[in-house]
């Protein structure tokens, strides 16, 4: 079932009097239980696109439409490249922040927060501050925070690129594992990355973008069965295919 439709979306910025086309006529759909990756070189407007879908920014043309079944209160949560944790709040307080804004009552809030802290494996660090955590653990807080609000759509903006290779791979597998549990939110995931291998490893579908102005060059369905082996010929072949679409 269709969850989200991006229709002819454009974004124009005016920098020092000269208009700049950042995104030009972008259209695609995200279905329920979809894991979609947007890939493209820097300057192709991937992050701007994600921010407009998360309603952090407004397009200058076109629209982002969510399925009417979701009603008015569509929840889109976001995981950031730099984690974007509030340094003055503890792990628990950071995870609870979205629920607090939704006016969820205290007991309920504590129950939900505890559940997600357990799920991402941060028990014992409830009262730690972000500064006391490693990069991988910080992003776990980011993941718990984003799931706690029970999102319909989870947006991830290069969530693993600030982590070292080993930590990143471990966390990718964990995110996929959480994703495959049907009792957990979200309904769909939209991830931005410039790491093609990461996209092929995780996504059901890949949207390839080209820069200046950002345009969708093509959409590809990744039909490699899961769990995917990053060394297998068909995997490497697929990465090459995506690569050839960008260059």
């Amino acid at each position: 079932m269709e969850l989200l439709r991006v229709k002819n979306l454009s974004k124009k910025l005016v920098v020092k009097g000269t208009p700049f086309m950042i995104l030009d006529n972008i259209s695609f759909e995200v279905k329920e239980r979809d894991f979609v990756c947007i890939v493209g070189p820097s300057g192709s407007g991937k992050s701007s696109l994600l921010r407009m879908i998360a309603r952090l920014d407004m397009p200058t043309g076109g629209a982002v439409e969510f399925s009417e079944d979701l009603g008015k209160d569509v929840v889109v949560s976001m995981i950031f490249q730099s984690f974007a944790l509030f340094p003055w709040l503890t792990v628990t307080e950071n995870v609870a922040i979205g629920l607090e804004a939704m006016n969820v009552v205290r007991e309920e809030r504590q129950r939900i927060v505890k559940r997600y802290i357990d799920i991402v494996g941060l028990n014992g660090f409830e009262d730690a501050y972000p500064k006391e955590l490693s990069g991988g653990m910080k992003q776990r807080v980011g993941i718990a925070r984003s799931l706690a609000v029970d999102p319909d759509l989870l947006c991830m903006d290069e969530p693993f690129s600030a982590l070292d290779v080993l930590t990143a791979q471990g966390l990718r597998d964990e995110v996929l594992m959480l994703w495959q549990q049907s009792d957990l939110p979200p309904s769909a995931v939209l991830m931005v990355t410039h790491n093609l291998e990461e996209a092929v490893y995780m996504a059901d579908r890949i949207i390839v973008m080209t820069p200046r102005p950002g345009k969708v060059s093509c959409e590809m369905t990744v039909d490699i069965p899961r769990p995917r082996d990053r060394k297998s010929p068909e995997f490497l072949d697929f990465v090459d295919q995506v690569f050839s679409k960008i260059v």
């Binding site: 998360a54 949560s77 950031f80 974007a84 509030f86 922040i97 804004a101």
Partner: peptide
């Protein structure tokens, strides 16, 4: 990103 996170999680 801190400001965006705050807006994304509906802090007002």
């Amino acid at each position: 990103e801190i400001i965006e996170a705050a807006r994304n999680y509906g802090l007002r």
